[in-house]
Design a protein around this nucleic acid. Structure first.
Lengths: 196, 196
DNA sequence: CGCGCATTTGATAGCCATCAACCTCTGTGG
DNA sequence: CCACAGAGGTTGATGGCTATCAAATGCGCG
């Protein structure tokens, strides 16, 4: 969906490496850089006051993130798997491309909203899968760099419901698993119809 | 929350008037203007492919909306009540203020996401009320320019559940109604605690 | 005053969160 | 090479919340 390769970098750093769970930035920290995922995957989340985590976004290779409205980050970001990032300060001139990045992030958040509201568990999961397919180049076999917990926190449902929904789709012959983190989509047409 | 008065206008039009249900722009229409609500209230929504409506945002007096990522609008917008809008073309130069408007819209969308996910019906409704209070200047008496249907479509719940949640809060002595569209908040501290 | 629509209230069923137990995979150490 | 431990994932059972259908009530407006 929101491809973000077109935003120009200034002072691009060498690739820095992050292991799973390594923090990239924390809520409240001073912002001012944008990041690009060179390889691996990132999750962006927020902690509610009662300690529950809400995953706001995942970012895959080629995508950019880290733009903030204020001087400080409103979210946490960490690596899901071995991940390489480059980092750049914001350009002095606010470029049209930067504005586009912000607007696309907004659209993505609103799309996410549409998915989460008023959809059943299976529908949400299918929408998530279709999004992942698109962002991984449309191949029928996709990697899920995130755990079931992450998926649940992203879609607003329990891990058990995530798992049960996967099983349901598998039993209906729509998915095939190769381990828990590799999925093959067996009938993309039917799946597309499922997410309305 | 996202006050948007600071974005500078170019070629501000005279106030145009909209009656309830009057369309301001439609999904797919050519975008390129931003709007400011001079008085009244606006709802921004999207129609799912199955015809259900998802309300993405409400905009009250003093707020701006209509910024788009692409050349065309991704959403519909119409007036909830008698509403006056001014309109301006986008500045040629992309101003920092415009970027801020985009970023604040993004943050607002993500906040909305946090409210809708993983919160009970009453919690969502309280969060909605607290947002409305803040945007109406913090007074304890607030107007709801939108119907129960709109609130339901905004929060992702049925109108019956909206109504029942209102009744619950009323029975607990936290709200008093003066007609269905005027609410008095009787215990803001307790209400704040309720939305976590 | 009375009509029509919005809202509220009631009854019921279904989905999903939760608690619990079991399974699977992976890495480690004997 | 195998046994084991631990984490992540799956499956089962149950209760609660909320969507849905249905009906009553209230309110705005002519």
């Amino acid at each position: 969906m929101a491809r973000t390769r077109s935003v120009p970098y200034r002072k691009v750093t060498p690739i820095s490496l992050f292991s799973p769970e390594d923090e990239i930035f924390a809520q409240g920290e001073r912002a001012g850089s944008i990041y690009r995922v060179e390889f691996g995957a990132v999750r962006v989340y927020r902690l509610n006051s009662d300690g529950r985590r809400q995953v706001v976004a995942f970012h895959l290779a080629g995508e950019m993130f880290g733009l903030e409205a204020g001087a400080t980050h409103s979210f946490f970001a960490d690596a899901l798997v071995q991940t390489g990032l480059t980092q750049a300060g914001l350009p002095d001139e606010i470029s049209p491309e930067l504005l586009m990045l912000a607007l696309r992030s907004m659209i993505r958040a609103q799309e996410h909203l549409l998915v989460i509201c008023r959809q059943s568990a299976v529908e949400k999961l299918v929408a998530f899968l279709m999004d992942m397919v698109e962002r991984q180049g449309g191949l029928e076999q996709i990697d899920l760099p995130m755990s079931r917990i992450d998926i649940g926190e992203y879609l607003g449902m329990s891990i058990e419901t995530v798992s049960r929904s996967f099983s349901k789709l598998r039993d209906e012959g729509l998915l095939r698993f190769h381990g828990a983190r590799k999925v093959e989509l067996l009938d993309i047409e039917t799946l597309k119809r499922l997410c309305r």
